[in-house]
């Protein structure tokens, strides 16, 4: 455990050097998205969604979506670079760390970044007065789940590809469809059956639904358990796969 924490500490020291470049994005993105989609698009959506004003309705989805974006951002190029360009993982493998420590420490740092981004968004949303329930802070736990459910398999992917152009493919063919068809901007009921499966299968929709319940104060019921189970399944499978891929790269 201390070994994993020492790896997390390494990433945090690194973040202390580079946080300024990402801080602006973390803060300004939510503001822009709130203004653009919520206030701008929202003005055309009369009556909101199911009686909830459009801005208030999309904020939970946007927070889950922010977790997705942060997870993908941290799990693609940084991981690829630590294998291919900077070779930082190989330096760590020469120390008395296990593969699980190296991977776990980095994932822990990613979760920190993901929750941080979600928390900033939540704070901005609170300032806009769009939170309806005292359950709202629970969205950070959901962000954590979505974050790991996305980050872990993405790490496995980034550890497997031979060129960073494969990371762009992931962005276009996995992240973008997931962002569009996961009930962030409109209910998935308006999607054709086939596209609805994008929502069911990938992690984001489950997180969006849970976030929405938390922020609007509605009960997810038993379906909530299904959402959590799906996210946990992605987390577990992703971590397992990432460990296999890391092992193959670091112990040869």
């Amino acid at each position: 455990m201390t070994a994993m924490l020492s790896v997390l500490e390494f990433h945090l020291v690194n973040y202390r050097r580079t946080w300024r470049s990402s801080a602006l994005t973390t803060l300004v993105m939510p503001l822009l998205v709130m203004l653009g989609f919520g206030v701008g698009v929202g003005a055309y959506v009369e009556g909101g969604v199911g009686g909830v004003p459009y801005l208030d309705w999309i904020v939970p989805g946007l927070i889950a979506s922010t977790a997705l974006q942060a997870a993908v951002g941290e799990a693609t190029w940084p991981v690829f670079s630590y294998f291919e360009w900077l070779k930082v993982y190989f330096a760590q493998a020469a120390a008395p760390l296990r593969v699980a420590d190296i991977l776990g420490g980095h994932l822990a740092f990613m979760l920190f970044r993901i929750v941080l981004s979600a928390a900033v968004f939540l704070a901005v949303a609170a300032a806009f007065g769009t939170l309806h329930s005292w359950w709202a802070p629970l969205t950070l736990v959901v962000a954590l789940l979505v974050g790991l459910a996305v980050a872990a398999p993405t790490v496995a992917y980034a550890a497997s590809v031979s060129s960073d152009s494969y990371l762009i493919i992931l962005m276009r063919f996995a992240v973008l469809p997931m962002s569009l068809f996961s009930g962030v901007f409109f209910p998935i009921g308006s999607l054709p059956e086939l596209l609805r499966w994008v929502a069911y299968v990938f992690p984001l929709w489950h997180g969006v639904e849970l976030s929405r319940d938390a922020i609007l104060g509605t009960s997810p019921g038993l379906l909530g358990l299904v959402h959590v189970a799906c996210l946990l399944a992605w987390c577990a499978a992703g971590c397992l796969l990432a460990h296999v891929r890391f092992r193959r790269r670091l112990v040869i």
């Binding site: 201390t2 070994a3 020492s6 790896v7 500490e9 390494f10 020291v13 690194n14 050097r17 580079t18 900077l86 070779k87 930082v88 190989f90 330096a91 760590q92 120390a95 008395p96 760390l97």
Partner: peptide, 21 residues
Amino acid sequence: DNLDIELTARENLTTYARFFG
């Protein structure tokens, strides 16, 4: 060399030392 180029020379050593407890 697989140093961390974003860190200072000293930080490269201190963070690495932490891996050894």
